[in-house]
Design a protein around this nucleic acid. Structure first.
Lengths: 208, 208
DNA sequence: TGGTTAGTTGACAGTCTAGTCAACAATAAT
DNA sequence: ATTATTGTTGACTAGACTGTCAACTAACCA
């Protein structure tokens, strides 16, 4: 009963895009409403505050990316190739956004986490939550790689955190240099960190 | 001739502290002036804009830290211990600031670079510039480590960037988790990345 | 068809924003 | 002591900010 609306989802995606391209602080509610084609009154009908919208936007964005993650981290795929695939996906998507917007925009979660961790507890917690979901995928892949014997015995939890750190750091450097090519050899760096001394032909076969 | 003033330097340090603890966007000129004990008119006597103040603040902060960097990366010190020392310094200072402010504040350059890389070209460039100075120290240490034979032969430029990525990523994760202990094993991670398979007794001797 | 619910609207409040400016005050050099 | 210069001040603009609200409208259900 009552009328229906897509204003909520339009606000979510407008917010994500705008904040990703600039920053949380630099984007106003008016601007989000304008891009979404929604009036401010409706904004506050759906969301109690800008901060709450942001939390919902990141959760919603994550959910939209779950299928991609499931594909990349499919147990069908050899463990190290999952991680390699994740690195290359990051590289590729930054390159695409660079072409489209003229900027390396970095990781949406990392951006907002870095900006607001000390200011907005809910956004900090949501960022941490999503990062832990990503870590779980990495952990599983590493644990599988150990089992299969692709890498030496190591603590998957620890190793996943190390790997994720390199990824986040490389994304940050790419953003600061505004150069997506910083990410070109991310996969090799990560494999090196995992103790894969010589990158095997199988893994490199897809480097064109 | 004319009167002298320390307002400029007070503004620089107030700006750095405030922005570091929250973010560029969340800190206002009025707030900076209040903490610095300087009226806004004076602010705009010394700086053309908030953005210009930020650039000057980061340059000034770097300059104040050069002696520390020179000590840590002294050529007197064994190459790998320089890198280890840098990691441990990062860990320690984040722990101190966590105790003082209740928050892991992260790397000041990375924070502002992440927030403003797509918005403020000058701040982006300054961040990149300072990061390159840090990379130069790492590069030298790695190059020395290769020469001394502490690590296998590798490209120092590439390796320095990899090492720095881990550091930035770990700092970011510590901030998002608001937990400085994320950085506790950063030195071991970095040495691992450099191919130091078994962390030697000499290097671990100072772990209590 | 009528009632209930869900969603829309635009004007509004109050506060904060970066930045300006002309008049004023202190000091260093002559 | 005068003067040129350097720095201080606080009131001011003009716009942006988040958030509010009461009146209005559309659609679903019975």
């Amino acid at each position: 009963m009552g009328r229906t609306s897509d204003a909520r989802s339009k606000l979510l995606s407008a917010a994500l895009t705008l904040i990703w391209q600039s920053s949380y602080g630099a984007v106003g509610v008016d601007q989000i409403c304008e891009v979404a084609g929604v009036k401010k009154g409706s904004f506050y009908y759906f969301f109690a505050s800008k901060s709450e919208l942001a939390v919902a936007a990141y959760e919603s964005y994550w959910e939209s990316k779950v299928p991609d993650m499931e594909a990349i981290f499919s147990s069908e795929c050899p463990p190290l190739e999952r991680i390699e695939g994740f690195c290359r996906k990051g590289y590729q998507s930054q390159r695409e956004m660079f072409q489209r917007y003229g900027f390396v925009v970095g990781c949406p979660y990392a951006n907002v986490g870095s900006e607001l961790a000390t200011q907005d507890p809910r956004i900090r917690a949501k960022t941490q939550e999503i990062m832990e979901r990503i870590l779980a995928y990495l952990e599983q892949a590493i644990s599988d790689a150990v089992e299969v014997g692709d890498v030496e015995k190591l603590n998957p939890k620890e190793a996943a955190r190390q790997v994720y750190s390199v990824m986040l750091g490389a994304l940050l450097r790419a953003k600061v240099e505004n150069n997506p090519e910083v990410l070109a050899d991310l996969d090799r760096t990560v494999l090196r960190l995992l103790g894969v001394r010589q990158v095997s032909g199988l893994l490199t076969s897809r480097y064109e």
